[in-house]
Amino acid sequence: MSRILEPIYPKVLSVRRLPGASPALLRAYGADPDKHTSLGLITCDQDDPTYVALDEATKHADVDVVFAKSFYAGAAHASGPISGEILGVLASGSPDEIEEGLRALLRCLEHDACFYTASECGGIAVFPHVIGSLGRYLSAQAGLQPGDPMAYLVAPPMEHTIALDAALKAAQVEARLILTPPSETNFAAAFLSGTLHDCEAAAAAYAQAVIEVGREPLR
């Protein structure tokens, strides 16, 4: 029997490096050939933990997240065995920086960012992630400064909508970005900012509400 709030570990499906990528490819994936020469690429079966891990990489190495996109309908409907539900691309002027960035990225996926089960049967997943200190990638996405704390909240559409309301009321947080359903993977997401303490309180309220909605969907 599966219990609630157990980590669902992300599975890294591929990690590749392109130390001297061709300029056309660099441009197509959002990199700047004048500044970037090397790419680090990753696919994973969980998209949101990977966005967080890509951001983590920018805190550890001189890398830019030039490309990160989720795949339609998620990992369960992937185009191939190593496609997963996201392709993330780090770019840098040095292969060594890419290497350091990938180390940080993989470390984050292994030890920090992951979805959690939100129902006893394991069918509902929630991502109530608290980032103590943003990197350059997500801070830009959220309109915050690198180093700011942020709550990164993801759940299925109904759960998310109810839980986000609970989260916004549970602490002194501000909604930076609310992505209404469906996302590419048919989830919904929100970025909340505030003090680290408030972000944690909001994320906890969010996770709790997701669990409650799952238990009583027809209340």
Binding site: R3, L5, V130, A207, Q208
Partner: peptide, 20 residues
């Protein structure tokens, strides 16, 4: 991680005694 700690705390609040 902040998240792991927050989730463990929430599990306790929700009456889940067993460790994660």
């Amino acid at each position: 991680s902040h998240t792991r700690r927050m989730v463990e705390e929430l599990r306790r609040r929700l009456g889940e005694d067993a460790p994660m």
